[in-house]
């Protein structure tokens, strides 16, 4: 019945395997759903939008984490209409991907706690400077508290969740 003749293709692994795509698609969706989990803080509520990305970097792999966190960020930003403008969000997304890579790398070299500290610093403090060209130092300092607090919450949640699931044999 089949129209296409079966051909034996090489079984060499490709990057875009079904498994990777499935994990990435679902965790990108989860980044959006995470942003609906509102964590109260002194600066208003903060969403868990980057926790799935940081978690993925630890649980699934560096590239998975980087792609998930970047696209997850764009998704969340898109839904609220890119409040910091599209180019800015693109740039932030790229930065976050870099931070996710670093997060995994430091975790492997030095352990989870140093990795969390580094990620919080990068994602909270360093990322704020993206506002420099468009908004000057005022915008940087205006944004920094929010980014730092958001990073603390997201990075810590991802680290704790990773610890809780490490022994579950799920990944």
């Amino acid at each position: 019945m089949s129209q296409v003749q079966p051909v034996k293709e090489d079984l060499k692994p490709v990057f875009w395997s079904a498994k990777r795509i499935a994990i990435m698609a679902i965790f990108i969706a989860l980044s959006y759903v995470g942003s609906l989990i509102k964590i109260p803080s002194p600066l208003g509520t903060i969403g868990l939008d980057s926790a799935p990305g940081f978690f993925s970097a630890l649980a699934f792999g560096a590239w998975e984490g980087a792609i998930i966190i970047a696209i997850g960020h764009l998704f969340t930003a898109a839904v609220v209409g890119f409040p910091l403008t599209i180019p800015m969000h693109l740039f932030i997304a790229a930065l976050m991907a870099l931070w996710a890579l670093t997060f995994r790398w430091v975790n492997q070299k030095l352990g989870l706690i140093p990795a969390m500290i580094v990620a919080i610093f990068l994602n909270g403090v360093v990322s704020s400077f993206t506002m420099l060209p468009a908004g000057g130092m005022g915008a940087v300092l205006g944004l920094m508290p929010f980014l730092v607090l958001g990073s603390v919450i997201n990075v810590v949640v991802s680290g704790l969740a990773y610890k809780a699931l490490k022994k579950s044999r799920l990944f």
């Binding site: 795509i21 698609a25 989860l30 989990i37 109260p40 002194p42 704790l160 699931l165």
Partner: peptide, 28 residues
């Protein structure tokens, strides 16, 4: 509230992540 321990959110986050991984496995 102002200061909420992050731990209180684990009962929500962990099952959500675990369920998502299982879902991704079936999806793949």
């Amino acid at each position: 509230g102002a200061f909420v321990p992050i731990r209180t959110f684990l009962p929500l986050v962990v099952p959500l992540f675990a369920g998502s991984i299982q879902m991704a496995n079936t999806l793949s």
